[in-house]
Simulated assay, not measured.
Amino acid sequence: MTTLPRTTPTTPASTGPSTGPIAHARADAAAGLDALLSAVGRLTADDLAGPSTLDGWTRGHVLAHVAGLATAMLGQARAAERGEVVPVYASPEARSAGIEAGAERTVAEHLTVLGDLRDSLAEAWPQPGSPLWEAPSGYRGGPLSGCLLAWWREVRIHSVDALAGTTQEVGYETWDDALCAHLREFLAVRLPDGVSVDDVAGDPRDVTAWLAGRVPATPLPGDLPELGPWPSSTPAR
């Protein structure tokens, strides 16, 4: 853990993430979690044990991952408020163990855990325009705003992963234009050198889903390039 002077986040809000994008990401992430909670409440135990769209993971695994990430980002927000930088997870092994344990939760237990995290995140995130969004974090060497963006991406993407194939299916139509634009910018590094997002034909939402490693609602035309790994080292600004 690194302790920083309380005066560290001195960058004026106007030079950091603008109020509008931060406010939208915070609001849409909260709306995404609310929608996920509503849908999970109508799942059965068999639904939870069924396969998600992610190899080797049940729907319960995906929900446990969402809860684990929410817990991690809550820790980042609280650390920034204290003027500290802490790791996102204690270790990769601890992260994996948490997902495996959480995957065994009942529907009621998932709802309790995710509901408590929803309330805690709403209290812990700084208000739009706060200089704390520029405070250093333990996530990719970037500021706290990157933690919010990661949470926004993950809760929206994994809602589709967890609910696909159920009667409460949530699809890519729940991804608004701002999220799709953010995802295309964030994931463009997965494309080979010399290929841009604009070179990939198809509906922008389907292109976004493909860039995220998911199966688009409508297949994309033409020969698609092989995607590189998910971004993992550059600061998430």
Rank of each mutant, 00 (worst) to 15 (best):
T2A: 07
R6P: 00
T7C: 10
P9G: 03
P9V: 03
S14G: 06
S14H: 08
P21C: 06
P21M: 05
H24E: 15
A25S: 12
D28L: 09
A35S: 13
V40R: 01
G41H: 02
S52Q: 06
G56F: 00
G56Q: 03
T58N: 07
G68S: 10
T71A: 14
M73K: 07
M73Y: 13
M73R: 11
L74W: 07
Q76K: 06
A77H: 10
G83E: 02
S91A: 09
A94P: 07
G98R: 10
I99L: 12
I99F: 14
A101K: 15
G102D: 07
T106H: 08
L111I: 08
D116I: 04
L117A: 14
A124Y: 11
G129N: 10
S130K: 07
P131K: 06
L132F: 11
W133K: 00
S137A: 05
R140L: 01
R140S: 02
G141H: 06
W151S: 05
W152E: 04
R156K: 13
R156Q: 15
I157N: 00
S159D: 04
A162T: 11
L163M: 05
G165K: 09
T166P: 00
Q168I: 01
E173I: 03
T174V: 14
T174M: 09
A181E: 09
H182L: 10
L183F: 13
A188M: 05
L191P: 12
P192E: 04
D193R: 12
S196I: 03
V197E: 15
A209F: 06
W210K: 10
V215G: 09
P216E: 02
A217N: 02
A217M: 02
T218D: 12
P219A: 00
L227C: 08
L227I: 05
G228S: 04
W230P: 08
